[in-house]
């Protein structure tokens, strides 16, 4: 149902999907050291071999993909580091896939893209350790993130087949990068909206939720009352009906 033959529409859609980072960066300049000359050169080679067919030979964008000028290293690290890029299946949204490059290669490409124009950088380790304030992080998460990703990051639906992915198993670095770059249809949470400290608190909250099993027992996917209702009908009532059948059967 999801994979409708959108043909040309899809291509345009993809252009739209990935172009947002550019707008974001244009007004939100967070630049870091842009890497050594060799690294950038190495990144450029990788870019030409793997990305240029969609994003243009100089990252200026083409029919298949948006411009990468100004999306920053964080965007490359997120998209390639989670395997979403290079994109392959056509659909409403890019999926997480096995990562296709080594960490060095990703860093090289990130350095190359960062060298094109200033953009969000890969976050510092100090924001990723998860030693912030989980209460504040939880509150921010509920206000800014939970409506799409669910109160504990189990994910949720968006329109027309798009979805907010589950945050289980997503590294702190990628979580941070997603907030600053706003991949695909996710909005951007720049540093004036959620300060780096705020982002650290959010990461702390997510870490707490992921590291601590539910005190109540198995969680049924943390997706709320629907799972609980189905469980009641299928297992709860199912088990009790099995007992009633035994109860009503004649013994031999």
């Amino acid at each position: 149902m999801r994979r409708r033959p959108w043909a040309a529409g899809l291509v345009v859609f993809f252009g739209l999907v990935l172009s947002g980072g550019g707008y974001a960066a244009a007004t939100n300049v967070v630049q870091s050291d842009i890497g050594s000359a060799e690294q950038i050169d190495e990144g450029r080679k990788l870019f030409l071999a793997n990305c240029a067919s969609c994003h243009g030979t100089n990252g200026e964008g083409a029919i298949g993909g948006p411009s990468l000028i100004g999306v920053g290293a964080a965007s490359v690290d997120f998209q390639v580091g989670t395997g979403r890029m290079p994109g392959q299946a056509s659909g409403p949204q890019l999926y997480k896939k096995p990562v296709q490059f080594t960490d060095e290669q990703i860093a090289a490409m990130a350095a190359y893209v960062a060298s094109l124009a200033p953009g969000p950088a890969i976050p510092d380790e100090e924001y990723l350790r998860g030693d912030g304030d989980p209460t504040h992080g939880g509150e921010l998460f509920r206000i800014n993130c939970a409506m799409c990703h669910n109160a504990v990051g189990a994910g949720g639906a968006l329109t027309e087949g798009k979805f907010a992915p589950s945050l289980a198993g997503v590294s702190a670095k990628h979580t941070y990068e997603a907030m600053v770059t706003g991949p695909q249809n996710m909005p951007v949470f720049n540093d004036t909206n959620l300060t780096p400290e705020d982002k650290k608190d959010i990461i702390t909250y997510l870490k707490y939720v992921e590291d601590n099993d539910s005190v109540g027992g198995f969680e049924l996917g943390s997706i709320g009352p629907v799972a609980e209702g189905l469980f009641t009908w299928i297992f709860g009532l199912g088990f009790i009906i099995a007992i009633t059948v035994w109860l009503g059967a004649k013994s031999n």
């Binding site: 707008y23 949470f189 720049n190």
Partner: peptide, 14 residues
């Protein structure tokens, strides 16, 4: 309080 310059394109503020 939020300044207009804080709100970059693609941002959403609650």
């Amino acid at each position: 309080p939020i300044k207009a310059s804080d709100v970059t394109i693609g941002s959403v503020f609650h």
